[in-house]
Simulated assay, not measured.
Amino acid sequence: MLIDFTIDDGQHGFEITHCTVAGWTGRDANAIQHHIDELAAIGVKPPSSVPLYYRTASAMLTREATIEVVGNGTSGEVEPLIVAKEGVLYIGLASDHTDRALEAHSVALSKQICAKPVAGTLWRYDEVADHIEKLELKSWIREGAGDDWVLYQEGTIASIRPLAELIDGAGLVAAAGASGKAAAMLCGTFGAKGGVRPACSFKMAMMDPVLNRTIEHVYDIVELPEIA
C-alpha cells in the first residue's frame, strides 16, 4: 500500500507492506479492565493475553476522507501510529475503525473488515522520544448529520504501554526489512466517554505540547445496507 505522508513540510512515499494493530495496550490495569468491560457490554470476549498483536492487510490503511462500512455497528478509535522504514521510526495518527458487531464473534476479523484512516503527517520519532509520553490524543464524534462535535476520547501516550515495548513486541523494524518498504502499527486507545457507539463523522488529533504542533484528521462514515 503506497501512502504519501508529509514529513518536515515535504512529501514522502511509504510502501507499507506489513500492518499490525496492537490491542489491549493500556498501561493501567484498571483502565484495561474498563475497556474490556465496556466491550464485554456489547458482547466482546476478553483477550487471551495482553497486549495482543493483530495482523491486518496493509491495504486497509487509507488517507481518504470517507470510509464505507456495512451496517451501523462500527466505531472509530484514536491511536498513535508508528511507521518503520529502513530502520527509521516515525509517529503519526490513525483510527482503528472496528466492526463492533463482528467483534463479538472475532476481534481479529473485526479489525480486518474496516478501513483504518490515517492522518497525512508523520513526525520523526527521535524528535519526540524525550517527551513522547506527553503527547495528547483526542477524538470527537458527530452521531448524526448536522450534530455538534462531542468529545469521545482523550488521554496521553503515558496511558499506553511504552511505545518502544510495543515496537519490539511487534517486531516492527524487522517487519519493514531493509528493502525500502515500510511497516506500520496502530498502538492502542482509550476508553470512550459515554460508551462505544457509532457515528457519522470522526475527528481525531494528536498534540505535542513541547514542540507546539498538532496532527489532525477527519473522516466521514457511510453505512452500506446490511443485506441478509
Score class of each variant (00 low, 15 high):
residue 183 A to P: 05
residue 115 A to G: 09
residue 124 R to A: 05
residue 118 V to Q: 04
residue 209 P to G: 06
residue 164 A to M: 11
residue 15 E to G: 07
residue 172 L to Q: 03
residue 47 P to W: 05
residue 101 A to K: 06
residue 117 P to R: 11
residue 202 F to G: 00
residue 212 N to K: 15
residue 228 A to S: 12
residue 158 A to Y: 11
residue 10 G to Y: 13
residue 32 I to H: 08
residue 132 I to W: 01
residue 19 C to I: 05
residue 83 V to H: 04
residue 17 T to D: 08
residue 201 S to N: 04
residue 129 A to M: 12
residue 25 T to E: 07
residue 5 F to M: 08
residue 27 R to D: 07
residue 109 L to C: 06
residue 18 H to I: 08
residue 10 G to D: 14
residue 181 K to S: 09
residue 87 G to P: 11
residue 99 D to E: 00
residue 142 R to A: 00
residue 93 L to A: 02
residue 58 S to W: 07
residue 144 G to H: 14
residue 188 G to Q: 01
residue 28 D to I: 10
residue 116 K to P: 00
residue 85 K to M: 14
residue 44 V to P: 00
residue 92 G to P: 10
residue 75 S to T: 11
residue 162 P to W: 08
residue 14 F to M: 12
residue 198 P to E: 02
residue 228 A to E: 13
residue 205 A to R: 14
residue 119 A to E: 01
residue 40 A to Q: 11
residue 119 A to W: 01
residue 115 A to N: 12
residue 40 A to D: 09
residue 72 N to E: 09
residue 89 L to H: 09
residue 200 C to T: 04
residue 101 A to M: 09
residue 177 G to L: 05
residue 190 F to I: 03
residue 104 A to K: 06
residue 12 H to C: 10
residue 121 T to L: 02
residue 64 E to N: 14
residue 193 K to V: 12
residue 61 L to S: 07
residue 187 C to I: 08
residue 69 V to Q: 04
residue 158 A to V: 10
residue 119 A to F: 00
residue 140 W to V: 03
residue 95 S to W: 09
residue 113 I to W: 03
residue 113 I to Q: 06
residue 109 L to V: 06
residue 69 V to P: 00
residue 149 W to N: 00
residue 53 Y to L: 10
residue 113 I to R: 10
